[in-house]
Design a protein around this nucleic acid. Structure first.
Lengths: 348, 348
DNA sequence: ATTAGCACTCGATTATTTAGAGTGCTAATG
DNA sequence: CATTAGCACTCTAAATAATCGAGTGCTAAT
């Protein structure tokens, strides 16, 4: 591939970029006319036949043009990931499209992020929320909302707030609850516990001392038992934007394709797996359908980037799902930049 | 229609019930064989021709069978609404399918309701959440989560909890915030104010007395300004379940149909309007697509029922969206019963 | 009022034809 | 030896034609 290297890249780019626009197989004639190489269509045919043998292109049927394969996209994307940076003007443009006008709570910020991702990229945005069960505790508060109803509010690092109303037998007064809140927070403060760790500590204390305080805590742990169902609950951390936006893409024009598309979206575990993978790495990642990593659906691509709260360890990842035939040089930097913006939004 | 009345009803039922199963136009021969009337197909043809003229049935094309019109459905549903009640066994069945195992916060309960609606009815569930901006306040709490970050938690009747992190210049200590919380709650307590009304009161006080307390409140009102965008924000109150479930229905097999289906779902304002209408009425309502009330899409039906918290005025409505060709005698009682169950779940 | 009989209509399905785009291969060229 | 013009070949998609059958409306008989 040595001396052909340049030719390969040029032809590949020409095919991919044209295929992005038309969604139709690209013929040798077109490539001959629209690519910097001054070669005849016959020469291009030779190159393309060779590239097909090596797995970068494929023919839908005998006498059609060529279409990029996942391997072809991969090669193409590598060069983009190295070179492309988002321009200042693009950044401004994106920022304009984002509506963070209202101060929102974290969950709404995540929702808003999905919407912005979709608006800007024209594909489906996804967000993996920070995982509550491993997040550090910031504060817990008991609030009386009825004679036998206590609202428990738990605040996690990253600004996630969870709440439940718990039922108790006794009619505690406000002062008692304030006292209990203080007592509990003095345990939490400055220790970076997560909920499970706190439970461990409390259980030990409880064996020694059996007062009402621990009764409420016990009830609390029961109602906030996030991962009792094992895997199941993780699904709630994955937020998926409007999938409909993809139905306009010609590759999903047929009924069968739409169904397989929806099947891919319903298979949340796989998407979560990839987003979690991204969370651990540093930068943007691209998963191409039928790739080794994402074999669930052919023709879809997932572009991901991690985000993280300024202070600490709370974080997750965001992404965009679109057709493999995608404007990578535009979308990749967008996802990257959105993750950056989101990181800035998470205050505590 | 006098002496034909019985015939009309029987034929209509036969057509609708068969059309529900096959989704194909129903011919006179079938009706003749499968309906209590002992009439020949020719007689049925006469009746059906007459019913078409009166608008209860229609022919997709000249030589096909007949299909019920919205008007036909309406007539059919009227008799169901009067007679059908859900059986105790069905109730048990539904209750089994509902997973309220984990004590959830109100928003998760609403989400769970949607999921159960979809599971039981096999159509798309929708829920209109209680409107926060008009809900009565129960409690407000300030919690320190950073040197300049205060988490404000507002609890509304119905158990809805909203929170925002607000930025302040001064570094308030915990005691001060507890004091402020108490002061504010003493204003709220027992007065059934909503957020807007509270704002009015605070603004008056503020003119007299300009201390830090009011500064924080001012910030709070700014960040919790729910309906500053007019209509826009109402969209957030509408939760829609998985729409994909409808794609299996034969009437949405074509690409065009799916797109018009999604268009109908995206037109949230219309759905919200109908759900709000239901909130004000007492019982179950049925809106048939291309009806006078819901002209947005042909072939869809929305069945709704209101729910309400035990104590007071917090409430909303739930519904199911499915094809007009729907098993009304099953779905209507289901929606009704689910609304009842949801009402029981809302504790405060 | 009801019904058997019959000619007729029109959509759905299948078969057939046609047009054209793009290929691979071969032989010629610098 | 890389490149290219020329040409026969392949296969799809679109257009056209043919066939089938379900269901109708109407008429005349009961």
């Amino acid at each position: 591939m040595d001396e052909l290297h340049e030719h390969y890249q040029e032809v590949l780019s020409a095919v991919i970029e044209e295929y992005f626009i038309t969604a139709c197989p690209v013929g040798s004639k077109f490539v001959a006319n629209n690519c910097p190489l001054s070669l005849s269509s016959a020469s291009i045919r030779n190159i393309m036949a060779d590239m097909e043998e090596r797995g970068y292109l494929s023919q839908p049927h005998f006498s059609a043009g060529r279409v990029p394969t996942p391997l072809g996209y991969k090669l193409y994307i590598e060069s983009i990931l190295k070179t492309k940076k988002i321009s200042r003007r693009q950044k401004e443009n994106i920022k304009l499209k984002i509506d963070f006008s209202n101060n929102k709570d974290i969950k709404n910020i995540l929702k808003q992020t999905i919407r912005s991702l979709s608006d800007v990229s024209h594909y489906t945005g996804v967000v993996l929320a920070p995982e509550v069960s491993v997040s550090k505790l910031l504060h817990i508060e008991f609030i009386k909302v009825g004679p036998h109803n206590i609202l428990v509010v738990i605040i996690f690092e990253g600004g996630i707030v969870e709440n439940r109303i718990i039922l108790v037998d006794k009619n505690y007064d406000d002062d008692t609850l304030v006292k209990y809140s203080r007592k509990l927070n003095s345990i939490i403060e400055g220790h970076d516990h997560n909920l499970d760790e706190l439970r461990e500590i409390i259980i030990k204390e409880m064996l020694r001392d059996r007062e009402d305080f621990y009764f409420i805590l016990n009830k609390m742990f029961f109602d906030f038992n996030f991962n009792n169902n094992g895997e199941e609950d993780k699904d709630d951390y994955l937020l998926i934007g409007s999938e409909e936006i993809l139905f306009d893409e010609p590759e999903f024009a047929s009924h069968d394709k739409i169904k397989s598309l929806l099947k891919a979206f319903n298979d949340k575990k796989t998407i979560i797996k990839l987003l979690e993978l991204t969370k651990e790495k540093k930068g943007t990642m691209v998963f191409i359908g039928s790739d080794t990593e994402w074999s669930e659906i052919n023709g879809l691509t997932l572009i991901t980037a991690p985000y993280k709260s300024k202070k600490g360890h709370a974080g997750g990842s965001i992404g965009v799902i679109g057709p493999a035939r995608m404007n990578y040089s535009f979308v990749i930097p967008v996802v990257d930049y959105m993750a950056e913006l989101l990181s800035e939004m998470i205050m505590i």
